[in-house]
Simulated scan of single mutants.
Amino acid sequence: MTNQQPPQRFTPMSQLATDYPVLVIDTNAPLRELHNCVSERLNAVLKYLNLMACTSLPDYAENDINTVTNIALILLRDVSDVFKVIEQRGFDTPNKP
């Protein structure tokens, strides 16, 4: 017999700047709200990267490019973390007859 731990209500988000998780995802949040969170971030980063793709790179210093990359990385990491919760919830839900 295996002892299964109940799923944690809050799961930490990925972070590089801290040793202790300060941002968490409520795994019990309604799927629609989780989807809205993912959609908002994904659409923002897509628009942001599209804007940057239409900008002439010689106009910007290397530091500016690093800033743009870091912003996109943080937003996409958020998207990935929330998608993991959505997927886990979807895969863990038993099929109802």
Score class of each variant (00 low, 15 high):
16 L>V: 03
16 L>Q: 05
16 L>K: 02
17 A>H: 02
17 A>G: 02
18 T>I: 03
19 D>H: 01
19 D>F: 00
19 D>T: 01
19 D>W: 01
20 Y>G: 01
21 P>H: 01
24 V>K: 03
24 V>C: 10
24 V>A: 08
25 I>A: 13
25 I>N: 14
26 D>W: 02
26 D>P: 07
26 D>R: 03
27 T>D: 15
27 T>S: 15
28 N>Q: 10
28 N>F: 05
29 A>T: 10
29 A>C: 11
29 A>E: 13
31 L>P: 04
31 L>Y: 07
32 R>L: 15
32 R>E: 15
33 E>Q: 07
33 E>A: 13
34 L>F: 12
34 L>R: 08
35 H>C: 12
35 H>I: 15
36 N>Y: 13
36 N>I: 15
36 N>F: 14
37 C>V: 12
38 V>A: 11
38 V>P: 12
39 S>I: 07
39 S>G: 05
39 S>M: 05
40 E>V: 11
40 E>H: 04
40 E>W: 06
41 R>N: 07
42 L>W: 08
43 N>R: 06
43 N>K: 08
44 A>D: 11
45 V>L: 01
45 V>G: 04
45 V>M: 07
46 L>W: 02
47 K>R: 10
47 K>C: 06
47 K>M: 12
48 Y>C: 01
49 L>A: 01
49 L>P: 01
49 L>N: 01
50 N>R: 11
51 L>R: 05
51 L>H: 04
52 M>L: 03
53 A>C: 08
53 A>I: 09
53 A>G: 09
54 C>G: 00
55 T>N: 08
56 S>Q: 14
57 L>T: 15
